Amino acid sequence: MSPSPVTRNDVARYAGVSTAVVSYVVNDGPRAVSPQARERVLEAIRVLGYRPNATARALRTGSTQTFGLITPDGGNPLFAELAKAIDRAAAERGYVVLQTSADGDPETERTKVAQLLARQVSGLVLVTPAEAPDLAGADVPVVVVNRVLPGVSSVSPRYREGARAAVEHLAWHGHTRIALVIGEPGPRSEVARGAGSERERGWREGLRAAGLADGPLIRVRFSRDGGYAAGRWLAGLEVRPTAVFVSSDLQAVGVLRAVREAGLLVPEDVAVVAFDGTAEAEWCWPPLTVVRQPLERMATEVVRQLVEGPAGRTTAYPTELVIRKSCGC
């Protein structure tokens, strides 16, 4: 016969306090508890192994203190790092995060939005959604990351400024033919969702600021194999670019491999700068110069809006150009 679960009354008796005091400690309010009483309650919880009933608490407070997070690709290092940052920021506020992936599929995304809302999450985060989601039945805060949707709060890096800074840095190195590797157009691509197009605009602005014509441009999937295909194409051009701005770290990893297989050196034959700034970029060879997204700041702002109320507008943060070997510095 299994032992009876530990109750709030058990904790109160062990700590020598009322059940109300136990509730104030567990729920962090609504009334203050003296440090001495709080410590006795926490010690009782540890000794007895008390586990508060989250479902009962949700019914009582009207909040599950859970956020739903949907990313387009759980295997992408950028989204994995962003999810970890959001999880840390949520934990500091006393929330937990339920994360899932839509695999870039609009129908899967719609289904998972509905499933998370049915689980009564306290807020919803959509990272680069494949399309404008149906939020008609959502009565919780919603924040979109890396895409702008009418009437929905969004948080993103300043893509265009970051891309321009990357191109201007390559031009400063003396490169006059700077290529762009960007995502392919289509309903599920970042180009269609706006982030990719902002990077393309920044690439063109950087070239114009340096008095340069457009270099070669190729659209491929936002993936390692997409970048690999782009690198093979660039290496085979009759007039090769001497530098390339790659719109994601994953693509840049593929570009590096293709360039090396073609017998070319980075940065001696072709310099490379990528956008994102994940840990993967630092461990490539040569280490990638990157435009780093401010993931921690973005995550903090996402959670702040979910807890305190959405801003109803786009909040964009500056990126950082991180210099490593791949650009020639």
Rank of each mutant, 00 (worst) to 15 (best):
Y14K: 06
D28T: 08
A32C: 01
Q36G: 04
A37D: 08
I45S: 03
R46Q: 07
V47Y: 02
L48H: 04
L48Y: 04
L48F: 05
G49D: 05
T55D: 02
A56H: 06
T61Q: 09
T64W: 04
T66I: 07
G68P: 06
G68N: 03
T71E: 02
P72G: 02
D73K: 12
G74C: 02
G75P: 01
G75H: 14
F79E: 00
A80D: 00
E81I: 04
E81V: 03
L82Y: 12
I86A: 00
D87E: 15
R88H: 11
A90D: 01
A91S: 15
E92S: 12
R93Q: 14
V97W: 08
D103T: 03
P106T: 05
P106Y: 14
E107Y: 02
T108R: 14
A114M: 07
R119Y: 06
Q120A: 09
S122R: 02
L124I: 02
L126V: 03
P129G: 08
D134C: 11
A136N: 05
D139K: 14
P141D: 01
V144W: 10
V145E: 01
N146P: 11
N146L: 13
R147M: 14
V148Q: 15
S156Y: 15
Y159V: 00
E161G: 10
A171R: 12
I178T: 02
A179P: 10
S189I: 09
E190L: 12
G194M: 15
E198V: 02
E198H: 14
R199G: 04
W203H: 14
R204I: 13
A210K: 11
I218H: 05
R224T: 09
D225P: 04
G231R: 05
A235E: 13
A243Q: 07
F245G: 00
S247L: 08
S248P: 07
L256T: 07
R257S: 11
R260A: 13
V266H: 03
V266D: 01
A271S: 10
D276M: 11
G277Q: 12
T278Q: 09
A279Y: 12
A281I: 06
E282N: 06
W283A: 07
W285Q: 03
P287N: 11
Q293G: 00
T300F: 01
R304K: 04
L306D: 00
E308D: 14
E308S: 09
P310G: 02
T315V: 15
A316M: 11
P318E: 15
E320V: 10
G328V: 11
